[in-house]
Amino acid sequence: MQIGILEDDHDQRDYLTLCLEAQGHELAGFERASQLLRALRERSFDLLIIDWQLPDACGMELTRTLRSEHGWRGLILFITASQGEEDVVHALQHGADDFLAKPIRPAELTARVEALGRRFVTSDTNYLQPKVAISDQYRIEPDEHTIWCGAEPVALTQREYQLASLLLRHVGELYSRAYLLEMIWGVNGDISTRTVDTHVSRLRRKLGLNGSRGLRLKSVYQYGYRLESCATAPVKSS
């Protein structure tokens, strides 16, 4: 994969580069957020590794800005010295696809990147399917990696799009959190199931999956989630 590393500590950046180059990835390093933003206008990356503490920006805020203002849909691995659960949830809510705490362990780093890479590699085959009109309210546009809600496209991250696409194509099917982690994130028990809960909460809000548009994303206690149709708007089968 083409990977951009935003880390102001020179030694840490070299360490990350050394670990990932050994796995065959192509790396570009940046120490300031402004340098990365300029690079994104000139080249593409499959994955960005972003540190929290930066000399000219907050990595958390930069991640949010990349998603909401720049429309960047690639993968983001967020790195920080904090290991608190609240910080993990905060990073995911701001648009990160995964989270890694310092000190970085080489085996865990490469495993996380490989897991993200599996989702990058397989997303085209799993999700680039024909257009699907789920109802008069929802439409999946695989070529654009977008979900349309009514007459408007909804801004989603790559993970959000993949999760929404899976659920919308299988209305009524019950999925465990563990299964969703494996299917969407490509990992099996390596990250907290709170990751799924956070993304589901965002999808429910962004797509109006509260029953008002004919579909309700329901939590099944201590198990997972099911997208259900409501009587207000019949759902077309795909």
Rank of each mutant, 00 (worst) to 15 (best):
7 E>P: 01
125 T>A: 14
201 S>E: 13
234 P>D: 08
110 T>Y: 06
98 D>R: 01
77 L>A: 05
117 G>C: 08
200 V>E: 02
64 R>A: 15
82 S>V: 08
201 S>N: 10
46 D>F: 02
220 V>E: 11
78 F>S: 09
79 I>L: 14
180 L>P: 00
197 D>C: 04
13 R>W: 00
34 S>A: 15
71 G>K: 07
44 S>P: 00
49 I>K: 01
176 S>A: 13
39 A>I: 05
145 H>W: 11
131 K>G: 05
225 Y>V: 12
92 L>N: 00
216 R>I: 13
124 D>R: 11
119 R>S: 14
64 R>Y: 13
186 G>I: 00
135 S>W: 08
226 R>F: 03
29 G>P: 09
92 L>A: 00
74 G>V: 14
76 I>H: 01
71 G>N: 10
193 T>I: 10
204 R>D: 12
97 D>Y: 02
96 A>E: 04
124 D>T: 06
168 L>C: 09
8 D>C: 13
109 L>R: 03
216 R>L: 14
98 D>M: 02
17 T>I: 04
29 G>V: 07
219 S>D: 12
124 D>Q: 10
197 D>A: 11
217 L>R: 02
212 S>G: 10
198 T>Q: 09
200 V>T: 10
12 Q>P: 00
195 T>S: 14
54 L>A: 09
26 E>K: 12
130 P>K: 05
34 S>M: 10
220 V>G: 01
145 H>P: 00
166 L>W: 07
182 E>W: 05
33 A>V: 06
183 M>I: 08
121 V>E: 13
138 Y>R: 04
31 E>M: 07
84 G>I: 05
112 R>G: 03
148 W>M: 11
227 L>D: 02
232 T>H: 05
156 L>W: 04
222 Q>K: 15
127 Y>D: 13
6 L>N: 00
204 R>W: 08
177 R>C: 09
135 S>L: 08
35 Q>W: 04
159 R>M: 13
163 L>Q: 04
129 Q>F: 02
155 A>R: 09
102 K>T: 06
229 S>G: 14
39 A>W: 00
206 K>T: 02
60 M>F: 12
173 E>C: 06
119 R>E: 08
172 G>A: 09
70 H>R: 12
120 F>E: 15
96 A>F: 01
93 Q>N: 15
238 S>T: 07
212 S>A: 14
220 V>L: 06
213 R>F: 13
69 E>Q: 14
34 S>C: 10
152 E>F: 08
89 V>W: 01
16 L>K: 03
38 R>P: 00
74 G>N: 09
186 G>S: 11
